[in-house]
Design a protein around this nucleic acid. Structure first.
Lengths: 321, 321
DNA sequence: GTGAAAGCGCTAACAT
DNA sequence: ATGTTAGCGCTTTCAC
């Protein structure tokens, strides 16, 4: 029961052919119910566990999909990884997760490496050039998440709607000067969020200062707090919650009261922690988006047809707005 | 260059045998340098990417190791996942990550599923019974992380030393009553940390109230804040940073000043965020531990010999102590 | 130094 | 309804 038996061994033990054992698992309806039963019992008895790699070799259809994320320590991604695995499970698929480190060259290397052994790829927040992505997706099933490349299958976790709504609310409350603290330059989310804020601020005839927390990390964000204070904004919109919390801590430490003096809005709702006051943020539909991505992949057989799915988040007004 | 060529195709294109192509990659020194060069050039030209699954089938030695974690959204684990992947890379190994959801049955299912296609397993914070673990590790390479089962190979990220030191410091500063807020019941870390605090508190003749944040989550922790206030402790040690931050927020909201009224110490140093005041915590050697685990696995061929590696963390005194 | 052949564990025609 | 055969992509004896 402990040792791993093979199909051939199970077959031998039962005096049937390997194909029968294989069929008992893959096409049970092609066998006598009784046979299926006997085979399954023997398999369990011998501790048989299917070798999925061998199966993939044989069928040419691996039951694994690859998922790349730029940075697994970014709290935005683990929930997506979980959602991917859970949804894949429903389709009897495995998920192989690889971290690209935000490095396009590394991302490409990983993709090449994964390709022979996965059925398809979900690329989350890919940093690759459009043409590289197009070339890859032309001959292989690929779904993009949070990357908007026309012609490809993509799922976008949009924050623009709630962001514009939030800005409108701030403006209505009398805010005339805004500040946006951006995240990773090359990310689609950064573009989408910044653009939304710019549009909304302009629409209300207010002022906007755009700052950037270079590598999208907490430390980087702290350095911009001085600039925020200086520009005298009445509301700060941050690219994500990590940055927002850094800003919150910085403002508080400088005696600026949130939300009385400055309103503060984060994005992602990915952190398992609260601040004081609790951070207002935009909740995205990350899990749902990842489920969609997996579904697209498991449906398609061959390159995934173009489609653009945009899932809109919602503002969560908590203590900082 | 786009399509995935196979070894046979590369061989055909060159008019050599498949074995030669194979050798050019796996045992280049058995070939004329010039041949190796020609083969590599042709392979690159044709976009040949080795199929690792097929190689594993053929050699019987998969170049992949499996890693299970209880909860990937717990910020404690992503850095370990990253470390595992980075170290594995150095050994030309892949890492397949699976989430057990803290469920022993699920963990066991995943292990069985992984076994045929991985060279070995790293089980982080395993929730399986000792005998199940022993049985598994008897016939298969397994390294435990943060689970202390005698007889097996294990890496422990210990917090006891720094925790005892911290308690001693609090006692020296006049604290007579302590509170420990525990985490997941079945985890080794919980036992190790709680025991350390109990021991240290007893040694200084002080009082200890042990509370628990049931599922180790932020929400659960908030519910115990009232109990903390009630027991009148002068210092709180939390199982991890997530709990500690919840406690901090709860205390602050109730007008209790940290660290003036109550000192607060977290554990793990895993969160990419700060609080105000910044949380004091215990930094563990998670990355280093995971590297060790991978090394043990890639060294051993067959069951990993017993060994117990204990890596000690250090106290990080920041703003809450 | 290189080729030919067998086989890893499994599946899918094609028999029967 | 089940067995036989061939082969997935690769590695590895064993020959030459």
């Amino acid at each position: 029961m402990a040792a791993r038996a093979t199909i051939v061994e199970v077959a031998a033990a039962l005096g049937v052919s390997p194909s029968t054992v294989s069929r008992a698992f893959n096409h049970p309806r092609k066998l006598l119910p009784e046979t299926v039963e006997r085979v399954r019992a023997a398999a369990a008895e011998l501790g048989y566990v299917p070798n999925r790699a061998a199966r993939a070799l044989s069928t040419g259809r691996p039951a694994t999909i690859g998922l790349t994320v730029p940075d697994i320590t970014n709290p935005f991604f683990p929930p997506m990884v979980r959602a991917a695995q859970r949804e894949a499970e429903r389709h009897e698929l495995d998920v192989f997760v690889a971290e690209t480190d935000q490095d396009p060259a590394r991302e490409l290397r990983l993709i090449e490496r994964l390709r022979p052994q996965v059925r398809g790829l979900v690329l989350a927040s890919s940093r690759l050039d459009e043409d590289v992505l197009r070339a890859t997706a032309a001959s292989f099933p690929v779904v993009l998440v949070n990357r908007d490349v026309p012609g490809l299958a993509r799922v976008l976790l949009a924050a623009s709607d709630p962001l514009e709504r939030a800005v409108a609310g701030f403006a209505a409350a009398g805010v005339r000067s805004f500040c946006y603290v951006g995240g990773p330059r090359r990310s689609w989310s950064e573009l989408e969020r910044r653009t939304a804020v710019q549009r909304a601020v302009a629409r209300h005839g207010a002022e906007l200062t755009v700052l950037r927390a270079n590598r999208g990390t907490f430390e980087a964000a702290q350095r911009v707090v001085d600039d925020i204070v200086e520009c005298g904004a009445g509301a700060v919109v941050a690219f994500d919650d990590v940055i927002a919390l850094a800003v919150l801590a910085g403002l508080t430490a400088r005696g600026v009261r949130v939300p009385q003096d400055v309103k503060l809005l984060g994005c992602d709702d990915a952190l398992p922690i609260v601040s004081d006051p609790p951070l207002s943020t935009v909740r995205l539909r990350a899990a749902k988006g990842m489920r969609r991505a997996i579904q697209m992949l498991s449906a398609a057989d061959g390159p995934v047809p173009e489609q653009r799915v945009e899932l809109h988040g919602e503002v969560l007004h908590r203590g900082t707005t």
